[in-house]
Design a binder for these strands. Sequence first.
DNA 1: GTTTGTGGTGGGAGCGCTCTCAGGTGTGCG
DNA 2: CGCACACCTGAGAGCGCTCCCACCACAAAC
Lengths: 328, 328
Amino acid sequence: MPAPTARSVTLDDVARAAEVSRATASRVLGGYGFASVDARDRVHAAADRLGYVPNITARALVRGTGVRLVVAVTGTDATVLDDPYVDRAVAAAARVCAPHGVGVSLEWLPLDAPAGLRRLDDRSVCGVLLVNTIAPVLDAVPAGLRGRVVSIGVGSPAVPSFDVDNAGGTEAVLRHLHAGGRRRIAMVTGPRWLSCAERSVTAYQRLMRAAGLPVRLVTGDFTAARGHRAALTALRRWPDTDAIYAVSDATALGVIAALRGRGIQVPHDVAVAGFDDIPYAAVSAPALTTATHPVARIVTAAASAVLDGRPVPPVTAFPSRLVARESA
Amino acid sequence: MPAPTARSVTLDDVARAAEVSRATASRVLGGYGFASVDARDRVHAAADRLGYVPNITARALVRGTGVRLVVAVTGTDATVLDDPYVDRAVAAAARVCAPHGVGVSLEWLPLDAPAGLRRLDDRSVCGVLLVNTIAPVLDAVPAGLRGRVVSIGVGSPAVPSFDVDNAGGTEAVLRHLHAGGRRRIAMVTGPRWLSCAERSVTAYQRLMRAAGLPVRLVTGDFTAARGHRAALTALRRWPDTDAIYAVSDATALGVIAALRGRGIQVPHDVAVAGFDDIPYAAVSAPALTTATHPVARIVTAAASAVLDGRPVPPVTAFPSRLVARESA
DNA sequence: GTTTGTGGTGGGAGCGCTCTCAGGTGTGCG
DNA sequence: CGCACACCTGAGAGCGCTCCCACCACAAAC
């Protein structure tokens, strides 16, 4: 339970000191309505002298605007909150919200309890950013939250989506591998319940089939550890694999570590590509070829949309771009 | 400007539906004071039926408790907010705060404007976590914020500190390098204005002098790019360097990339060690030897202390532990 | 002279909640 | 029977703010 904070200077104090009414002080400080130059000066002087800082809680209460934006991450367990993608999203959201005096909360939305969203239907919540979410969660958005929820990923008629062009990014990576002469390309997927990761899988399947190449899928979960295991599985099943495309960079780094452990040269024997362009992709050995997308821009756009409360187009797609480095 | 949220079910609605007064409903839902079994049942039933969610803003206003916790990061520019350490801190803080309905804001505190803290002396702020801060900022903590501020790093008489044992961690790493036969150990520092990073430098200097070994310092800034440059500088100045200790893992990964670029074998020719144990330390090539410290635990402790408002010991130190991997 | 602005001001309601306080009603005990 | 002492309840003040609305003074237009 947060402890009460010390009493501070209120608008009443300022008004009294400036010898005007609270309404006038509010008008001056809020910058709306009329006020004589004289009153304006006196109020500003008093506010400065007293060190007045408006109480955002009270403002939020009367305006009914909410004071925190929730980043809700869907997943099987709370470890999804440790994802670097989530970290970046929270940081970007926090930066957008800070000037509004709005805080950011991180919530885990269990995969099997989509109704958990209801808990957020509280007027202190000015918006929700759904990360890595699934259709049942979108369907469970309570009416009171409508218009204040956006999804970073899959959308729905009721929930606008700000999304990465996973299919386009996947295509760029696969074309690059193909251009490098790779033909037996395995893919380490994300969790299969996550439709935005599945879009990459669908794109992979489509492109491989179109090119008459074999489809080789191993399920991963975005983590490096799982990527490590997945690489070994792929090599066991299809020893002639000459490239591995991982749906996240963390996974790709795990794949590279596994190959190194097996004495397999990257990219000479097996090329490896990831997806995300995390900071360490550039300094891994070999430096990781991946697809980049503007997480910060996506989240900034999404958070701004929620905060502004403007109507938003149902889908805003952000392009993904190939970053060719050493690993493929 | 956040948009007004839809009108939702209030305590009055619940009270009316349960045919009790607002006070009784509040008492039942708040779990304090007396209430007959009958009233209790009716209120709970009504709350469930109506889908009542308390408005945390209103509660915070009347209790005067604040609804957001600010993570304030000191640095020369806003890019400090992209630090993975900061990301982890925000995520951990958000997780502690969420159950209290408290949001987390991220603020950048310019290095040359310690008074920026004053802006936070607002009753909507229930606490401040100072990250990577410096003495002038601590001295500038406004009176109204006293008791609600803790520092992750250097402390002061007015501001309790939750800190990593940088000196101990540095000692552990250097002893490990020494035990591996390394004698010409260069160090890539953090920003020189950051006293908690400087503690590592002091420990390095002390230990090297005590062992009669040369002190070789290059200034870094925690980034991989700077680590890359710093490694080249160190090699130019002291070509016989046989180990590089970087004060952050990101820096160390940059160092390894630079050495690889020069065709220098790690750890055969030059050993490399970092500090932090970020997730990618384990999957880099070679896997990075580093010192780990419990960021999540530190921040959790700090955030809980602020939220609880209990008096806190002036300094709480968290041990740092060597993680020996391949790079040293 | 009356009407219609137009700039300026303050009263006051009310956002949704907590919590004090003054009052009940019922039981046990001297 | 009176009194203390539970248990239980609701009226109401008030957290700090915004903003509607009534009001006033004065000037311009009819």
